[in-house]
Design a binder for these strands. Structure first.
Length: 271
DNA sequence: ACTGGCTCCTGAGGGC
DNA sequence: TGCCCTCAGGAGCCAG
């Protein structure tokens, strides 16, 4: 699925393709995404010139004078430009036709994605207002994680996946980052030391950087703009490796569920 | 104020 | 070959 690195890539790519162009028509074939696309979105958007494309967490923000369109790619969402007359494919739910004869097309087989509209400053939209820190923000640090973790009894893996704490750490990366620093995923967040959070913060950034370098991580669903699956999955040390030998110590990788999510760890290396 | 469980959806993969 | 069942997951929402 699109993780933070992939969303950033999509953001940069479409920015070069849509900024400065005017929306001439919005075709909605399937309005029922994670939330129903607002009925007045097409009316509000048509005639607007896209002035900016930005990312906040995994949300993509297409700004114009009259408001901001907010996309989320969910797990299987893809957002690409095509010539306006190009052939439709299955799950092509929305087309934003632009004045340069291209169409920004949203395809999402599982429909966990979203397309919403914000008339006001998008950062005040309910979905964005309470988001946590960007992992590459200069002030993101172990000290900050440590501070946030006090009085939090939930598992540290769920804590770093909490979008109100730090954004963009998905299920795969959470398991991998915790393995990298030797912290057991089920430990209550408040029991992790400052020193450990300092290493964990670095590991989160490191894992995300690696994923970018390898073109994404998705085990099953993600395909990059070139249609190739990302290769980062081959770098995974624990995710999806239940009952296989740990690369570090040979102990069998364990699997458990935390917050309804598959969680992988080495019982020997992580404590 | 937190936490855990539920929910949306389709497609992959396994068993037979 | 095909059918059916299970599982996967981002993350907001809500009940406890």
């Amino acid at each position: 699925m699109p993780e933070l690195p992939e969303v950033e890539t999509v953001c940069r790519t479409i920015a070069t393709q849509v900024v400065g162009h005017t929306v001439t028509q919005v075709v909605i074939r399937q309005p029922r995404l994670r939330w129903v696309i607002p009925a007045d979105l097409a009316t509000l958007w048509v005639g607007q010139t896209i002035q900016s494309v930005a990312r906040r967490a995994k949300y993509l923000l297409l700004g114009s004078a009259g408001g901001t369109a907010i996309f989320h790619l969910g797990m299987t969402g893809r957002l690409r430009t095509f010539p306006s007359d190009s052939t439709l494919e299955k799950h092509d739910h929305v087309d934003i036709q632009l004045s340069n004869q291209t169409s920004l097309r949203f395809n999402d087989s599982r429909r966990f994605g979203a397309l919403l509209w914000s008339a006001d400053a998008p950062e005040q939209h309910p979905l964005l207002a309470r988001l946590g820190m960007e992992p590459f923000a200069p002030i993101f640090s172990g000290a900050w994680l440590y501070e946030q973790a006090q009085r939090r009894s939930l598992a540290v893996k769920q804590f770093i996946m909490d979008q109100q704490v730090v954004v963009g750490v998905g299920n795969i990366y959470a398991s991998e980052a915790l393995f990298q620093v030797g912290i057991a995923p089920q430990r209550p967040a408040s029991t992790v030391s400052l020193r450990e959070y300092e290493r964990l913060a670095v590991a989160i950034q490191d894992i995300l950087q690696q994923a970018i370098a390898h073109g994404g991580s998705t085990v099953r669903d993600f395909q990059g703009g070139d249609g190739k699956a990302g290769s980062f999955q081959q770098q995974l040390k624990v995710y999806g490796r239940a009952q296989q030998a740990c690369h570090e110590c040979g102990t069998l990788i364990a699997r458990c569920r935390l917050g309804q999510r598959s969680t992988y760890y080495c019982p020997q290396c992580q404590s």
